[in-house]
Amino acid sequence: MKKTILFFALLTVSITAFSQVKVRPGVRLGLNAANITNISDSDTKIAPNAGLFVNIHLSNFYELQVETNYSNQGASRDNNAVHFTTVDPYDPYNPYYRNYLNNDINVHYVSLAIANKFFVIPDVGLHLIVGPSIDINVSDDTFFDVTPVDFALFGGIGYEFPFGLGIEARYKQGFIDTRDDYDGDSFYVGSDGYYVETDGDYYDGDNWLNSVFQLGVYYKFNF
């Protein structure tokens, strides 16, 4: 008799718990204010981000959200700056000048992220966001070789309306140096226009890390 009562008690608790679980797909769209730390004469670059997600509502105060995102990151460059070259910086045939000064740094990432959403007041749309992200470099236009993968953590705040529309502000910080195979060596550009390694201090040991502020909207479908 006791086992029967215990069984039905556990069954009731399980049904109650699973009845609160809701799985809803959704879409995200927003803008990045991106930069790469420790690059001289760099500035914030405005670029888009977008994504798809599956939201798992586990309780009134917690949701787990699995996301796949596209994010255009990098930095804007000061085209009037002159940088570490022994060649005439205004020579149009100088590849260092042409590639380094005239172009912004554009890195296109596709990422897999897990967002943990904590609702400050149950059943109210205000929520905090925190989670990890693995970003894969699918394309870039830079003057240096970019690492193929970045690991980042993000956090933020958002508000969701009862009909599924929400707005969020996130900050994402990368933790892997964006320079592929960076070994701490410095370089300058020789008279022939090619990079020459040196023991100088151009690479001063400070990591070049992705730093991104994201503002966007999302919508959760209710099928």
Rank of each mutant, 00 (worst) to 15 (best):
D181G: 04
F221N: 10
D123I: 02
L128Y: 05
F213Y: 10
N72L: 13
E197N: 11
P162W: 07
F143R: 11
V130M: 13
D140N: 15
Y93W: 05
T68F: 03
S111V: 07
T142K: 05
N79G: 11
D192K: 11
I114E: 10
Y188I: 10
Q73P: 02
L6M: 08
N210C: 05
V212F: 00
Y93I: 01
Q73W: 03
D88L: 03
G174I: 11
N102R: 10
V212W: 00
G193K: 13
F118R: 03
D41H: 15
F144K: 09
V212Q: 01
Y100F: 08
S76E: 11
K22Q: 14
G156H: 09
R77V: 14
G125D: 07
D199L: 00
Y96P: 09
S111C: 05
I136H: 14
A115H: 14
R170W: 00
V82E: 08
D192W: 06
D206K: 14
P132L: 04
I56T: 15
Y109S: 00
A9E: 04
Q173E: 11
N94T: 05
V107Q: 10
P92T: 08
F119E: 07
I176T: 13
I167Y: 05
Y70H: 08
Y188L: 07
A75P: 01
L64W: 04
I15W: 02
T68K: 01
A47V: 05
N99L: 10
A9P: 01
M1I: 10
S111A: 15
N69A: 15
L128K: 00
G174K: 03
Y203Q: 13
R28G: 01
T198I: 05
R77C: 01
V107Y: 00
I36G: 01
N106K: 15
Y97G: 15
G205A: 12
N79E: 11
